[in-house]
């Protein structure tokens, strides 16, 4: 399941949990688990998009708008890339 999730993410270029659940015929909760495991093991890395200016401008009137995460993004790590190449 984990390798399949990683393979689909690498192929599609985005993470859609409902789509992963449908394609792998598993529940969305399991997809969440799988993504958490891949993150924990370092096959994918989550970007800290909401932390852009939290340390810089806490007194700024726009700090709250600034620290918000509009879109969650990830990267496939080198470890993940190696696994994808090995299994392709």
């Amino acid at each position: 399941m984990l390798k399949e999730i990683l393979r689909i993410i690498g192929r599609e270029g985005y993470i859609s949990r409902p789509k992963l659940a449908a394609e792998l015929n598993i529940s969305k909760v399991l997809v969440d688990d799988g993504i958490s495991q891949l993150l924990r093991m370092g096959y994918i890395l989550e970007d800290k998009n909401g932390e852009g200016c939290s340390s810089f401008c806490s007194s700024c009137s726009r700090a709250k708008a600034c620290s918000k995460e509009v879109v969650k993004t990830f990267k496939i790590s080198e470890k993940g890339q190696r696994l994808l190449q090995a299994s392709s």
């Binding site: 993410i9 270029g13 985005y14 993470i15 859609s16 949990r17 409902p18 789509k19 994918i44 970007d47 879109v71 969650k72 993004t73 990830f74 990267k75 496939i76």
Partner: peptide, 9 residues
């Protein structure tokens, strides 16, 4: 660089 976006429901 390459990145992956999450498309939430």
């Amino acid at each position: 660089s390459y990145f992956i976006m999450e498309l939430p429901s």
